[in-house]
């Protein structure tokens, strides 16, 4: 037997305040990460691409806080520089799949019929396929490069957004306010832009924010396999891949980009959770 928890107003306020502070704290952290990514070239203590074999594979010390890699490049500078490619690629990817998937979903939900059935079967295929395997196939056909990795991941990830957008459109399409908008003489374009989009944005945006972390990992994963960023571009996944043979002798070469991925993904995931709590309080865990 489940007991229904009784929540007092005071407890409710405590929960709401905690959510608010969590949002501010994690939002600030996420912004800090974005700030580092945006201004990376100005924040690096050394040139991330300058090689100096005399100081190769130095352990962390005061001059090089995270040590140096096998070409003597400063790891801290490379990690800072690497945030740029990884995070911006992930953001670009999330934006592309949100817009494309959202549009497909809206079209399917709005028009229905054969077009809907066709597009949904296509999305079924992508949902049924193991995503990473497909992305590896696409990326290897198109050869390396971080933009191609973004395209490959976009190919497999849009379908989730199409599903969410479609189900939301179906839920609100028959609402009286849609009929009222029609009676106000609004055409299809206005109905979609002014009434559908704002009303389905919540769940789609929450999914998008929660996906940033996943996408960072997938891009780093493709780069690790040599299908994303190409050397010498500083990118966390390819940096880990380059250092993996030295894991036992010089662990900092692998650990610094690894920790960077870990921290960034964690910040974005926790921030995404909090955004969901703020936008959709009904799903909040007690």
């Amino acid at each position: 037997m489940m007991e229904t928890p009784t929540i007092t107003l005071r407890e409710q306020k405590v929960v709401r305040d905690r959510t608010k502070w969590k949002m501010i704290f994690l939002g600030a952290l996420a912004l800090a990460v974005l700030f580092v990514a945006a201004f990376a070239p100005f924040l690096t203590p050394y040139d991330p691409y300058a090689q100096d074999l005399a100081i190769a594979l130095q352990p962390p010390d005061a001059a090089h806080l995270l040590g140096t890699d096998r070409y003597g490049r400063d790891m801290l500078s490379r990690v800072i520089m690497g945030s740029r490619s990884t995070i911006f690629a992930a953001l670009l990817l999330v934006m592309v799949i949100t817009v494309v998937g959202g549009m497909v979903g809206i079209i399917c939900g709005w028009y229905g019929g054969k077009l809907d059935a066709f597009l949904m079967r296509v999305s079924d295929i992508f949902l049924a396929f193991p995503g990473m395997v497909f992305a590896i196939a696409v990326a290897s056909v198109m050869s390396g490069g971080i933009l191609n990795a973004v395209v490959a991941l976009a190919c497999i990830s849009w379908s989730k957004y199409a599903r969410i957008a479609r189900s939301q459109v179906l839920a609100i399409k028959s609402a009286p306010y849609m009929a009222a908008a029609k009676l106000s003489g609004s055409g299809t374009g206005k109905m979609i832009w002014k009434h559908i989009v704002p009303n389905i944005a919540g769940p789609v945006v929450v999914t998008a924010v929660l996906d940033i972390g996943t996408m960072i990992m997938e891009i780093a994963g493709l780069s690790f396999l040599g299908l994303g960023a190409t050397p010498p571009t500083a990118e966390w996944g390819s940096m880990m891949s380059n250092g993996r043979s030295m894991l036992q002798t010089s662990p900092w070469v692998v650990l610094s980009p690894g920790c960077a991925i870990f921290l960034t993904v964690m910040i974005f995931n926790l921030a995404g959770d909090t955004v969901r709590d703020v936008l959709d309080p009904r799903q909040q865990k007690r």
């Binding site: 609402a175 009286p176 306010y177 009929a179 009222a180 009676l183 002014k194 009434h195 704002p198 009303n199």
Partner: peptide, 13 residues
């Protein structure tokens, strides 16, 4: 037309 459920006949956003 005026609808049955007033609150639902206005866009919540």
């Amino acid at each position: 037309m005026v609808f049955q459920t007033p609150q639902d006949s206005f866009d919540p956003r």
